[in-house]
């Protein structure tokens, strides 16, 4: 008898990703799909995907999706969750979306202890619009709108979302992970799974920040991009659990 050792999760649609080579959105999509399958909640899951590279998430996930305007996914997810309190509702947001234009929405969703899960993709740049500076862009990092490198005297320093949100009482579980190697992928999956489980047991707002590469806009090969993430991003954005309010 044959047994399948590796299969496409049911929560992932059978279409190829449009993401650039070496982009880690695909890995995170798969982790989310696996987690939703494992929790057996696909038919009661509603994803909210705002503007950014992940705007086409509705093509890739095999469950209900609400597309949202730039930055407003936490507000949209609030509306969905209040109508469907027994559903699993998550937002999938990039750093331009969440940390810049949508900063108010994420802070207040956390403050309300909104029972949703946010997957926050931090790749230190605006991807979809072609590599502009994000609030998460590192000091001296070159982007199309910081062509001489991010100048901290002019535009400040990187916004550390996980650290910031962990100060909010309503936040239940806040962690930062990366998917740069198999070991970190396993940790990322465990954190994401925990975030969904906590939502489903009604415990409150959870956010998992995923450090991610953007080789195209960073101007690197996929391998260089992973190295750059390890040597530059992780020191700025240390991995780990920042808040576990019910924590063991």
């Amino acid at each position: 008898m044959n047994s399948k050792l590796y299969a496409r999760p049911e929560s992932l649609a059978d279409v190829p990703f449009h993401y650039c080579p070496g982009c880690q959105h695909g890995i995170v999509h798969r982790i989310i799909a696996e987690v939703i399958d494992e929790l057996g909640v696909r038919k009661q899951t509603i994803g909210v995907a705002p503007v950014g590279c992940s705007v086409l998430a509705y093509d890739y996930f095999n469950f209900d999706i609400v597309q949202a305007s730039h930055g407003r996914a936490p507000a949209v997810a609030t509306g969905v969750k209040r109508v469907c309190p027994d559903s699993t509702v998550f937002t999938y947001q990039g750093d331009g979306d969440l940390a810049s234009i949508g900063c108010a929405e994420i802070v207040h969703a956390a403050a309300r202890g909104e029972k949703i899960t946010t997957i926050f993709i931090n790749n230190a740049i605006y991807g979809m619009t072609g590599g502009q500076m994000a609030p998460t862009t590192l000091v001296d990092q070159v982007t199309t709108t910081s062509p001489y490198g991010r100048n901290e005297n002019q535009v400040g320093t990187p916004l550390c979302i996980s650290e910031m949100l962990s100060t909010i009482q309503g936040a239940r579980f806040i962690a930062r992970v990366a998917v740069n190697n198999p070991s970190n992928m396993a940790k990322a999956k465990a954190a994401i799974k925990k975030a969904f489980q906590l939502q489903n047991s009604g415990e409150g707002f959870c956010l998992i920040e995923v450090l991610s590469t953007c080789p195209t806009n960073w101007g690197m090969t996929p391998v260089e991009a992973v190295k750059w993430l390890e040597t530059n991003m992780i020191p700025q954005y240390p991995l780990g659990v920042f808040k576990d309010a019910g924590g063991e």
């Binding site: 949202a68 507000a75 509306g79 969905v80 209040r82």
Partner: peptide, 10 residues
């Protein structure tokens, strides 16, 4: 946007 989400959920 909350209205959008709630309306989207029916």
């Amino acid at each position: 946007n909350m209205v959008y989400g709630a309306a989207g959920a029916g």
